[in-house]
Amino acid sequence: MSKPVVFEIVIPTSGKAYKFSEDVRSESLIDFPNGIILGLRQYSPSMNCYIPDKDNIYHYAGDLNFNNNNNNYSIHFHSRAISSVGINSEVIPISKRNDSICDIKVGLDIDKSTAWFENLDKQF
Results as ranks from 00 to 15, higher is better:
residue 43 Y to H: 10
residue 101 I to C: 10
residue 26 S to C: 11
residue 40 L to C: 01
residue 74 S to T: 03
residue 123 Q to G: 06
residue 111 D to S: 12
residue 66 F to A: 10
residue 1 M to G: 14
residue 99 D to Y: 07
residue 53 D to W: 00
residue 72 N to R: 15
residue 92 I to Y: 00
residue 3 K to N: 11
residue 4 P to M: 11
residue 124 F to I: 07
residue 64 L to Q: 02
residue 12 P to N: 08
residue 117 F to W: 13
residue 63 D to K: 05
residue 59 H to S: 09
residue 78 H to A: 15
residue 39 G to K: 08
residue 5 V to S: 11
residue 117 F to V: 11
residue 97 R to F: 10
residue 52 P to T: 11
residue 102 C to G: 07
residue 68 N to L: 04
residue 104 I to L: 00
residue 98 N to D: 08
residue 9 I to S: 05
residue 9 I to G: 04
residue 103 D to E: 12
residue 20 F to A: 02
residue 96 K to F: 05
residue 110 I to Q: 10
residue 107 G to N: 03
residue 6 V to W: 05
residue 85 V to W: 00
residue 11 I to S: 11
residue 58 Y to F: 03
residue 39 G to W: 09
residue 17 A to E: 09
residue 48 N to R: 09
residue 30 I to K: 15
residue 14 S to W: 12
residue 40 L to T: 05
residue 5 V to H: 04
residue 2 S to H: 11
residue 113 S to T: 14
residue 121 D to A: 07
residue 53 D to A: 01
residue 113 S to M: 09
residue 39 G to D: 06
residue 101 I to G: 07
residue 101 I to D: 02
residue 11 I to G: 05
residue 44 S to L: 13
residue 92 I to N: 03
residue 17 A to Q: 08
residue 121 D to E: 11
residue 121 D to K: 09
residue 91 V to G: 14
residue 105 K to I: 06
residue 28 S to I: 13
residue 106 V to C: 07
residue 65 N to G: 10
residue 109 D to M: 01
residue 62 G to S: 09
residue 14 S to N: 15
residue 60 Y to Q: 04
residue 64 L to D: 02
residue 108 L to D: 05
residue 1 M to E: 14
residue 11 I to E: 15
residue 110 I to D: 07
residue 97 R to W: 02
residue 25 R to H: 12
residue 43 Y to Q: 13
residue 69 N to G: 05
residue 1 M to T: 14
residue 95 S to G: 00
residue 2 S to R: 05
residue 102 C to W: 06
residue 59 H to G: 01
residue 34 N to K: 06
residue 30 I to T: 12
residue 89 S to K: 13
residue 66 F to T: 01
residue 44 S to E: 15
residue 114 T to E: 14
residue 100 S to L: 03
residue 12 P to I: 10
residue 105 K to E: 08
residue 77 F to M: 04
residue 28 S to G: 10
residue 17 A to I: 10
residue 93 P to D: 08
residue 59 H to M: 00
residue 48 N to C: 15
residue 57 I to S: 00
residue 15 G to A: 02
residue 103 D to V: 12
residue 95 S to W: 00
residue 20 F to M: 09
residue 110 I to T: 13
residue 80 R to W: 03
residue 25 R to G: 15
residue 10 V to P: 03
residue 13 T to E: 14
residue 121 D to V: 13
residue 91 V to K: 15
residue 71 N to E: 15
residue 27 E to S: 08
residue 95 S to P: 00
residue 71 N to H: 07
residue 74 S to M: 04
residue 108 L to G: 07
residue 101 I to N: 05
residue 119 N to E: 04
residue 63 D to C: 04
residue 37 I to A: 08
residue 2 S to V: 07
residue 120 L to G: 07
residue 92 I to R: 05
residue 116 W to E: 11
residue 92 I to T: 01
residue 100 S to V: 03
residue 93 P to G: 14
residue 122 K to T: 07
residue 84 S to K: 04
residue 51 I to A: 13
residue 57 I to G: 00
residue 66 F to H: 01
residue 50 Y to P: 04
residue 108 L to P: 02
residue 9 I to R: 12
residue 2 S to I: 12
residue 19 K to P: 13
residue 89 S to L: 10
residue 78 H to G: 14
residue 123 Q to P: 03
residue 108 L to I: 13
residue 36 I to Q: 15
residue 16 K to C: 03
residue 90 E to C: 05
residue 83 S to W: 06
residue 67 N to F: 01
residue 64 L to A: 04
residue 97 R to D: 11
